[in-house]
Amino acid sequence: MDFIMLIRRRWFIAFLSISHLCIVWIVFQYIYEEEILINRLAGYREVADPSSVRTIYTRLVDSGGILRSRLQVLYRLVDVLIKAGMYDEAIEVMKRILNLAPENMEMRLRLALLLHNQGRYMEAEPHFIVLLKELERNV
């Protein structure tokens, strides 16, 4: 049958639409595999398998350029890394987030506190200074 005649058939349109949806979903699952996993791990109370977190961390952070559009995923990664006790990695991710979004004061406070709690006072200080300046500006 001619394809042009076929595309006017309702059943064929339904078949194409469902196939299209399935293909998009499969490609989506493949491309956002890490993000989907992170989101799942972020929902758990504790991380049972830190090695999987490390693998995701390596793939996401070491793969180079991270776009602003992926910030949401990095926020979740921070939560997961802290839950897994991987504080150094969490600090690294937070720094990258602040490079991309320096206006995110909540993340800056979390980073400053984490650095302080880890005894890395010298590194925490500049962040506290920025936070105080921002506080003064708002007051």
Binding site: F28, Y32, N39, Q72
Partner: peptide
């Protein structure tokens, strides 16, 4: 239509909150 599905999946799976 791929874009529309993709955007919905992004919101659904929490990949983006935009």
């Amino acid at each position: 239509f791929s874009g529309v599905w993709w955007g919905l999946f992004k919101l659904l799976y929490g990949i983006s909150a935009d």
